[in-house]
């Protein structure tokens, strides 16, 4: 049972890891994108749309589907959709200098609206009896795991039994961490988020860094939506089923102190906390809801502790949420 619990926690944690890695990249450029829930939702529905079109093009017959295309089409559609959301956000907040919080919240509402619109339209198209789209064929391709994992006992089950999107999430988090801390691009990006005036004076193109970071961050976050629908729900999209995972991803950024490597373990912990109530016997409905609150409670505790310790490295980027004017020149 413990192995199942761990597997479940990781499965639940991966969308959060995508979301928070993406949000970390964005926040390092000084932009607090509260639109992440919307971005992830759009990432999910874009992937669904891509998969839906490809399945239809192949006559809904798994024999006709090319495994490579079955994976790449939804993947690219998802990236495209969420990047577009990132582009809207960066145009509003970087170029027009709109308030980041308001823009982000609007983007969340907008993204969920768009997602439900396309979701609803697709459901109408297939004329299904249930209010959902079922893409089990595409999901099958996404759910391929390593064939030899089963032969390796508990080790294989805990470490090697996952779908490629799980390993990709961890790989992206590690790459982002490396880029941020060990490369000149990362140094420049962090400088933009900490003190854009200084970065500007040092000859860094602040606007470009902010745009690129926001769009790449959104693309990464959107993959969380794709993983949710292709792996977690086995290819079943229902409107509004995604829940509050986007907000959890933002909470995870704070929990991880803006470090992608910490976010990896944080996402597993959040996944475990979200799921703990299913593994404890005899809980009433009310107690279950209390358990679901745990990730947020843990985030608040982390915030209190880091605020008390006042370590500067554990604080958000100094200019997070503030627009940058170059002043007169």
């Amino acid at each position: 049972m413990i192995i199942a619990f761990i597997q479940r926690a990781i499965l639940l944690g991966i969308p959060l890891l995508y979301g928070s890695t993406g949000e970390i990249v964005t926040e390092k450029s000084g932009h607090l994108n509260l639109g992440i829930p919307g971005v992830m939702y759009v990432g999910g529905i874009s992937g669904v749309t891509g998969a839906f079109l490809y399945e239809n093009a192949c006559g809904n017959n798994i024999e006709n589907m090319n495994p490579f295309l079955a994976i790449m089409i939804p993947l690219l559609a998802s990236i495209l959709g969420s990047m577009l959301m990132g582009l809207i956000y960066s145009f509003l907040t970087v170029t027009l200098r709109a308030n980041q919080n308001v823009t982000g919240l609007a983007l969340t509402t907008f993204g969920i609206g768009i997602g439900n619109f396309f979701g609803g339209s697709l459901i109408k198209l297939v004329d299904s009896e249930m209010p959902s789209i079922i893409l089990t064929k595409t999901s099958d391709f996404y759910s391929k795991t390593l064939p030899f994992a089963d032969n390796l006992g508990w080790f294989g089950e805990i470490f090697l039994s996952y779908e490629f999107l799980t390993y990709m999430a961890i790989a992206i988090a590690l790459i982002v961490s490396f880029v941020l801390n060990r490369t000149r691009i990362g140094l420049n990006l962090r400088a933009v988020g900490e003190n854009p005036a200084t970065a500007d004076a040092a000859g860094i193109n602040v606007t470009r860094y902010k745009y690129v970071a926001t769009c790449i961050g959104s693309a990464i976050a959107g993959l969380g939506g794709l993983q949710y629908v292709m792996v977690y729900t086995d290819g079943v999209w229902s409107n509004d089923a995604f829940g509050d995972r986007g907000w959890l991803a933002i909470a995870l950024v704070i929990f991880a102190l803006w470090k992608p490597t910490v976010a990896i373990f944080g996402s597993f912990l959040f996944g475990a906390l979200c799921n703990a109530h299913n593994y404890i016997n005899g809980l009433g409905v009310a107690t279950q809801e209390l358990f679901k609150m745990l990730p947020y409670a843990v985030t608040i505790i982390v915030l209190i502790i880091t605020s008390m310790r006042k370590k500067r490295e554990h604080q958000p980027p100094e200019h997070l949420g503030l627009p940058y004017f170059r002043e007169e020149r």
Binding site: R184, L187, A191, E194, N195, T198, A199, I204, R312, E318
Partner: peptide
């Protein structure tokens, strides 16, 4: 200067 950066990081910035 960027406060959370080291002296060297600030110097090579950009």
């Amino acid at each position: 200067l960027v406060n959370v950066f080291s002296a060297a990081e600030n110097i090579v910035l950009g």
